[in-house]
Simulated scan of single mutants.
Amino acid sequence: MKIKFLSVLFLAFVLLAFGLPKSIQKKVDKAIKDTYQVDTFLFESKLISEDIASTLPSKFGTDNFFEIKSDSTLLGYAYVAKAPSKTDQFDYLVLLDSDLIVKKAKVLVYREDYGGEIGSKRWLKQFIGKTQNDQLKYGDNIVAISGATISVRSMTEAMNNLLASLKILNQKAAL
């Protein structure tokens, strides 16, 4: 009986320990509502087996990759992660449709004095429509921003890693 109680307590702790911080979750929820044009939705962690996750260029865990559903219909996926800037990191969100095509990219929290222009809708819209078969190149098909070189390169690399990871997940039928 004691072991069963401890198991239930541990499971409850694990389930409550994961997820996004409240301030980030609010921004993610707003982006989902605006992008998918829904008022209510389910936002659930999409578990990727450790065997597959360990081979991916991007980090996939219980706290950064989510399925978005409305009335049990899969609308798409949300990927939340951090990327390095000059002296800190910034949080970003990528929303994908059910075919793994980028619907939206958003910088959620930028912690530097300079380079915040990467959070502009105008700059981020260049990622919309990108698929697992695209290769992004700074200064080629990704526009440079003066004063934000490190952040732009970092976001470009993060997006490339995500797209490559999605390709692997799709090939292994993990999505």
Rank of each mutant, 00 (worst) to 15 (best):
Q37V: 00
Y92Q: 04
V152K: 01
N64T: 10
L95Y: 12
V28W: 12
D113I: 11
S54Q: 10
I32Q: 07
E117S: 03
W123R: 02
S154Y: 13
L74C: 11
K26V: 04
K82S: 14
I68V: 05
K167G: 08
I48F: 14
V94M: 03
Y138L: 11
E112T: 03
F41C: 01
I32T: 04
V8H: 00
K130L: 09
E157G: 05
L163F: 11
T131S: 07
I142T: 03
K26H: 12
Y114C: 09
P21T: 08
K22G: 13
E112I: 03
A78E: 11
K137R: 09
E67C: 07
D34A: 01
R153F: 15
S45K: 00
L47T: 08
E117V: 01
F127C: 01
T40Q: 05
N133Q: 13
V28Y: 13
D51K: 03
G76A: 10
G61T: 13
I128E: 14
V80P: 02
L163Y: 13
A53M: 05
P84F: 12
Q132I: 08
K106E: 15
K59E: 15
Y114F: 15
P84K: 09
A174L: 11
D140R: 06
V94E: 10
P21E: 15
K121M: 02
L6K: 01
R111V: 13
K172H: 15
L124R: 02
K103I: 08
M155L: 05
F65I: 03
K69C: 08
N141Q: 04
F41S: 02
V143P: 00
N133P: 02
F65E: 14
L108I: 11
D134H: 04
D97A: 06
A164V: 07
Q132A: 14
L108M: 08
A164I: 09
L6V: 02
A53E: 12
L42T: 07
G61E: 14
V94K: 01
A81V: 05
M155C: 01
V28Q: 10
S146G: 12
Y36N: 03
A158F: 06
K33T: 02
T149Q: 12
K46E: 13
L163H: 05
T73K: 15
Y110M: 07
I118E: 11
L74F: 14
T55V: 03
V14T: 04
T156F: 06
L20E: 10
S45D: 07
S98T: 13
Y92M: 03
Y138D: 14
I150W: 15
S154C: 06
V38S: 00
K125P: 02
I145E: 13
E44C: 02
A31W: 13
V107W: 07
L11S: 01
D140A: 08
S23K: 09
L47Q: 08
F13V: 00
A81G: 12
L16H: 02
S98D: 15
L20N: 13
L100I: 08
A78Q: 10
L163W: 14
M155T: 01
Y138V: 08
L75C: 03
N133V: 04
L175D: 15
Q37C: 00
F60T: 10
I24A: 13
Q126P: 00
V28I: 04
D63E: 14
I145V: 07
S146Q: 13
G19N: 06
K4F: 09
I68C: 01
M159Q: 06
F127G: 02
D63A: 14
V38E: 12
R111W: 15
S49A: 10
S72G: 09
G147V: 12
K30F: 07
E157T: 08
